[in-house]
């Protein structure tokens, strides 16, 4: 294990916090850091770049400019000057702009659905672990039963029943993705709740909810961060599968999943349509998974590879 860098003698020596220690270890993991920066880059590009005027509207069609090659510029029938960084699709829409806007949807679903699953999972797990006894047994049985549900089928039912609105999509995904999180938090809380600081909080007369939310949940943060990082790509995959099956984002709006679907349909004639979104999507998931692995090693040195 590496130690944090030495400090100057002026400040009073404090123990390094878990977070600082973990951050230091993470910085030594070049792959994880590269993944972190790449992911930030993708998020910034997808959310900020479309604010500038040089990114065209992704839904504007140019019937006369179909399947243009990458890095080509042309004048459309209406006399508009267009430049295609990654070429255009079968309707003359700018692939680059569609990837950016699709990324917004995919990333937003990834973040928000993860936030939903995180909230449910953490509260459920913490409550179950803290109260213990019968309630704990019953709550964990519920989780066991839900584990046996065919997930995909439930998400399909929910999305078809309650319409194709985007916010429902991430509520649905979040609602089925919280199980593992609740187990992780429960395990943590059970090992924490008998430690002295909780005893101290209780003897100070703090209420149950304050103990759970202020003392127990903050201490579960390490494994939760790791699992959250791994949930985001899982959720993004689920959204992509749904969009691929035609149940997620509805045209003309796009997500990376629906772009890949369009690309797969026209792969033989226009491989760029599949390859570009697939690369961006794959690299994003790649970086999140490596970041999650790196965070696990950083936050829990015991589990690191040797």
């Amino acid at each position: 294990m590496d130690l944090a860098p030495p400090r100057d003698g002026k400040t009073i020596e404090k123990g390094t916090s878990l977070g600082r220690d973990a951050w230091y270890r993470l910085q030594k993991n070049h792959l994880a850091m590269a993944s972190l920066w790449f992911f930030i880059f993708i998020v910034v590009v997808c959310f900020l770049l479309p604010l500038f005027p040089f990114v065209p509207n992704p839904n504007i069609t140019h019937p006369d400019l179909q399947s243009m090659p990458a890095l080509s510029s042309a004048t459309s029938m209406e006399g508009a000057e267009v430049f295609y960084l990654l070429g255009s699709d079968h309707l003359g829409r700018d692939i680059f702009a569609r990837i950016l806007y699709g990324g917004r949807v995919s990333l937003a679903v990834g973040f928000l659905a993860t936030a939903v699953s995180l909230s449910i999972g953490v509260i459920y797990g913490a409550l179950s672990g803290y109260v213990g006894g019968r309630l704990d047994a019953a709550m964990m049985r519920v989780v066991d039963i839900l584990y046996a549900l065919p997930f995909m089928i439930i998400v399909i039912i929910l999305t078809t029943y309650f319409g194709n609105q985007l916010w429902l999509l991430f509520v649905c995904i979040g609602a089925v993705e919280w199980l593992t999180m609740s187990r992780i938090v429960r395990g943590q809380v059970i090992s924490l709740k008998n430690q002295e600081f909780v005893e101290a909080a209780r003897s100070l007369g703090l209420g149950q909810s304050r103990i759970i939310f202020r003392h127990l949940i903050p201490n579960t943060v390490g494994p939760v961060i790791v699992y959250t990082t791994l949930t985001v790509p899982a959720v993004m995959r689920l959204e992509a599968i749904l969009s691929f099956l035609g149940l997620g984002v509805q045209p003309p709006d796009a997500s990376w999943g629906s772009l890949i679907k369009e690309g797969a349909d026209r792969m033989a004639s226009d491989p760029g349509l599949l390859i570009y979104p697939a690369i961006v999507f794959g690299l994003t998931l790649f970086s999140l998974n490596f970041l999650g692995d790196g965070l696990r090693d950083a936050l829990d040195p015991k589990s690191s590879k040797d």
């Binding site: 992509a240 599968i241 890949i260 599949l274 794959g282 790649f286």
Partner: peptide, 17 residues
């Protein structure tokens, strides 16, 4: 890791092709 990140719906059309 690459296999995990390339979703089935990317691999499937490529294998088909």
């Amino acid at each position: 890791m690459l296999g995990i990140c390339l979703p089935t719906f990317v691999i499937a059309p490529l294998l088909g092709e």
